[in-house]
């Protein structure tokens, strides 16, 4: 069990999302950064969809009341256990009674804490994700508060093996971590990609030539009116040639739509299921983690990518994740 000593800015339980109910207007929710969430789970022997804690900019303080395995991935919010800094992207054995805290935001916006066995909250419509607005899923349908106690789920046999391994290396420190790390490609992605790729949207041609050009040449700023639902961007005003009425239709994670004020909105994990604004572009799945780690004030530059190329990059990414998964299984089961 973990006890929440301080909640942080917005700490909620999320998994990979709620699917199959969007036709009833039920949003998918789920983590903003699927890559960091999945790696965090793999590092503690969980399945990739297991629920994690999503932290936002200011992390919580958590008291662990049982020995377990954890990992922290995504944004660097200066995690420390009993005051001793711990590394991101590692498998950590944490002892009962230890306090996990966070400090200065070094990079990124959202960090994910996975624990062996995940967090034990009920499935609502097939998912543990918190749907904040409707007050369902996750921990009592809300973000975590001081005093909340969250139970761990059932550990996998892989987690148990990893724990045995680390227990043997125990020192007098409140934790120990595997010296072994995630292949660099998956992590360096966050730093090396400065531009966000964009597949042209269905209404791209509706926009004036100037707006089309500006969209790909002038960076946009993430405004403070940005949250799990969507990022409102500030920059060039994007104008449509003829003010045609659009008929509402489905939108998805990463859709960039432009309301009549000309400022684009990128739709994120808590987006509505449908939208009625022209879609100038779409951030492909492979670059959504970059977006999830952008914070208010950050600058985003867009560059065009053809659909097929975006899918190829996605398949390549999935392969890397598979390698990581296989690597962990091999190390602990052979």
């Amino acid at each position: 069990m973990i006890r929440i000593m301080k909640p942080g800015l917005l700490t909620s339980i999320q998994d990979l999302g709620r699917y199959g109910y969007q036709k009833y207007g039920v949003i998918s929710s789920g983590v903003m950064d699927q890559l960091a969430h999945r790696i965090a789970n793999l590092l503690v022997g969980n399945s990739e969809n297991e629920a994690t804690l999503e932290l936002t900019l200011i992390g919580p303080a958590l008291r662990f009341e049982r020995d377990t395995l954890i990992s922290i991935c995504g944004a660097d919010l200066s995690p420390a256990i009993d005051g001793i800094p711990v590394q991101l992207w590692k498998t950590i054995y944490i002892k009962s009674g230890s306090l996990l805290t966070f400090g200065r935001n070094q990079s990124g916006c959202r960090a994910y804490i996975a624990a062996a066995g995940g967090f034990s909250v009920p499935d609502v419509m097939g998912s543990k994700s918190t749907y904040l607005r409707a007050g369902i899923g996750g921990f009592e349908g809300r973000s975590l508060n001081t005093g909340d106690e969250v139970l761990f789920g059932m550990q996998s046999s892989l987690s148990a093996k990893m724990m045995d391994y680390l227990r043997k290396q125990q020192t007098d420190q409140p934790f120990s971590q595997l010296d072994w790390s995630v292949s660099s490609g998956l992590i360096s992605f966050y730093k090396s990609n400065t531009k966000i790729r964009i597949i042209k949207g269905r209404q791209f041609d509706w926009f004036t030539k100037d707006s089309q050009k500006a969209f790909f040449s002038v960076p946009f700023q993430v405004t403070p009116q940005s949250d799990r639902m969507g990022y409102r961007l500030n920059g060039s005003k994007l104008e449509v040639e003829n003010k045609a009425e659009m008929i509402s239709e489905a939108v998805s994670f990463g859709t960039v739509q432009v309301p009549s004020n000309g400022s684009p909105i990128v739709l994120m994990a808590d987006r509505q299921t449908t939208g009625g604004y022209p879609k100038i572009g779409q951030v492909p799945a492979v670059d959504l983690p970059l977006l999830a780690q952008a914070k208010p004030g950050d600058s985003l530059a867009f560059e065009e990518i053809p659909l097929e190329a975006a899918q190829n990059l996605y398949l390549k990414r999935e392969q890397e994740i598979q390698h990581l998964k296989q690597g962990i299984i091999l190390k602990f089961t052979s």
Binding site: Y19, G20, Y21, Q22, K23, I247, S248, E249, A250, S252, T273, T274, A285, Q311, Y314, L315
Partner: peptide, 15 residues
Amino acid sequence: EFIPAFSTVTVFYDP
């Protein structure tokens, strides 16, 4: 999954 709307049905797939 799929999302029906006024004049469209959008089908989501896993590449």
